[in-house]
């Protein structure tokens, strides 16, 4: 089944919290290959995760207003 962006973005979020099934992974990868917008979404979800970790671990090196 070809996933649309709505389903793909949901899978991208779930992939950060659990292991996707092989079927889910294949369908997601197939969609990502042809969808730059969802590729951007994937990268941004990961950046958000990494940035929260910096908020936690990076203090007080980051002088935030």
């Amino acid at each position: 089944m070809k996933r649309n962006c709505h389903e793909a973005s949901l899978m991208l979020s779930e992939a950060l919290d659990r292991d996707l099934s092989a079927e889910e992974r294949v369908a997601l990868d197939r969609h990502l290959k042809v969808c730059p917008a969802c590729q951007n979404c994937e990268r941004q979800f990961v950046w958000i995760r990494e940035a929260v970790a910096v908020l936690r671990d990076g203090f007080p090196d980051w002088k935030l207003a």
Binding site: H6, R43, Q44, E50, W62, L64
Partner: peptide, 29 residues
């Protein structure tokens, strides 16, 4: 109705580039 983004996620510059990182973290917070 086809499950396609109405506003497609745009490509961001790397938020961990030193020049923009602090700003990114501030906005994220």
């Amino acid at each position: 109705e086809h499950g396609i983004w109405r506003a497609k996620p745009q490509s961001w510059e790397d938020p961990f580039d030193s020049a923009v990182q602090v700003d990114f973290l501030r906005v994220l917070e």
